[in-house]
């Protein structure tokens, strides 16, 4: 079993998951997530490298519909649910940094 989950690991993961976390949350989540991962040590320790993984319970592959035009959601109805729109599109804050 690897080293126990650290506070820095949790901070890193929160960044990857795009979650802002407070110092208090970092302490609490570190303790709680480490406890869950300790419980998962039984799975980590199994010698089952030769067992194929199961990602999904059904053997279905490449389920495709016919390539024909069908009705889709109404654009105005969809956009009406968005926090901000402009000219028929979703409006978002600045994506790129300021020009140097």
């Amino acid at each position: 079993m690897g080293a126990r989950l650290s506070r820095d690991d949790v901070a890193h993961v929160a960044g990857l998951a795009r979650l802002a976390v407070t110092d208090e949350e970092l302490d609490r989540f570190t303790e709680q997530l480490a406890a869950v991962l300790d419980h998962a040590a039984d799975v980590e320790a199994l010698d089952i490298a030769d067992v194929p993984p199961t990602a999904h319970p059904l053997p279905l592959v490449n389920v495709l519909r016919d390539d024909v035009v069908t009705p889709c959601l109404d654009r105005d109805e969809v956009l009406a649910q968005a926090p901000a729109i402009e000219a028929g599109m979703f409006r978002v804050p600045r994506i790129l940094g300021e020009a140097p």
Partner: peptide, 15 residues
Amino acid sequence: DAYYGQAQRVRTLII
């Protein structure tokens, strides 16, 4: 692999 991959193999064992 240590976590997600192992869990998927356990899934096979349970099946």
